[in-house]
Design a protein around this nucleic acid. Structure first.
Lengths: 231, 231
DNA sequence: GAGTGGTCTAGACCACTCA
DNA sequence: GAGTGGTCTAGACCACTCC
């Protein structure tokens, strides 16, 4: 603390005061200039610290009105989207991957619609199983647009999962995610060792590079799976 | 464009170049000083623009090495957590709320565990139905810690939902979220007009003010419901 | 009108990391 | 060692909004 205070120090100290309710929910906190004097820094530094707190939803700022502690700091939740392998290994479990099927065939209408592809198009269709400690964790049903990723045609995907392969071989610029509950189809139930009709947690991801669709993946998990976050 | 370029203008112009692949995925882009010359701004302004792109995962920055366009801009997804009313009205549908049950009773062990409450404790238990265009949208099963929110004891919750009431009456400092798939219980199926055992999409939220638990809510949706985001 | 946050500039020094 | 990003300062002007 001998040197200059960084915006991080100031941000953390202000967050501490809010958490300790030195500054109470709903209360106005001192203006930037006053805080700058207190912390012995430039106003711009305090401003940066406060902007980070505002972006996190911890404070709310209005010109002239000042800065006040938010009553409800949580307005959004963020989920990191890890590779399956990392997700499993982060839990300290052994990861294993198995290819269930590989074909080049016309994509069904719902996949084409989700990707915004007009007309029938032959795509690379992969079905994979991801296991944690030898227990089924996720069934993956993936369609890859060979026009966007021609190199995928030469890859067998027998030892590397499409997700990991694509990360290194297919840049993207945009992605959509959808999460839902569904009943397990016969094929999914079989792969996951569940009863047909059991509730499964389904994630879908669609990616594009510019205007060109890259891939669509449907990830099906047993009902024990959860998506969680903390704010 | 006659005046000074703002960091927003610069950020958007750089994002445009990346989207248009003028700057290709994986490529190094010019250094801050050079960009500052090009845009006729201070280096700090370019720095702020680039930091926003880096925070969004669109570029990756390293000292000495420079700034390069990310191959995989998506590492996390953000979901806004709206009030049910806003969620329904944003879809242009009519919102209606109905209280199904209200009682002060001991909280079950799983609720106490999720909130980190030791020992049995009597809490305010509410069951509510939220409808969109008169069709069941969400069943809400909520427990409120009366020690943290004593004013809730005097509220009937017959005309205002607990979520909206709490937003105005109970500040919080932290929240956890969990999403999962489950099979509808008899009570849930009845409220939502589903068959027992149908797959439902379940969200749970737990909130705290400092160390004190505020509320636990379990939100159950029909399987048509999805959680979606776009990056 | 006046108070507060929002942003820009110009310059400086530092921290990291590559060669 | 040197190039690049990271951050801070001091000052300025602007934009918004409350009174």
């Amino acid at each position: 603390m001998a040197g200059r205070a960084s915006f991080r120090d100031i941000r953390d100290e202000m967050a501490r005061r809010i958490a300790a309710r030195v500054w109470q929910p709903g209360a106005i906190i001192p203006a930037e200039e006053e805080l700058a004097r207190e912390f012995g820094s430039a106003r711009a530094t305090v401003n940066r610290a406060l902007q980070e707190l505002a972006r996190a939803g911890i404070v709310e700022r209005k010109r002239k009105a000042g800065t006040r502690v938010a009553l409800h700091p949580v307005r959004e939740a963020r989920f990191v989207i890890p590779l399956v392998r990392q997700e499993i290994e982060a839990e300290g479990r052994a990861y294993r991957y198995r290819l269930l099927g590989r074909a080049i065939e016309p994509a069904p209408a719902d996949i084409r619609a989700a990707l915004g592809l007009a007309g029938a198009r032959r795509m690379l269709h992969l079905r994979c199983l991801h296991l944690a400690d030898e227990r089924p964790w996720q069934v993956e049903d993936r369609w890859i647009n060979l026009a966007a990723v021609p190199a995928a045609r030469a890859e067998t995907f027998e030892t590397i999962g499409p997700n990991e392969w694509l990360v290194h071989n297919a840049p993207i610029s945009r992605a959509d995610f959808v999460f839902r509950a569904a009943r397990a189809s016969a094929v999914e139930a079989d792969a996951l060792g569940l009863d047909v009709g059991e509730a499964v947690f389904v994630g879908e991801r669609m990616t594009w590079l510019g205007q060109e669709p890259v891939t669509h993946v449907r990830m099906v998990h047993p009902p024990t799976h959860t998506l969680r976050t903390s704010v």
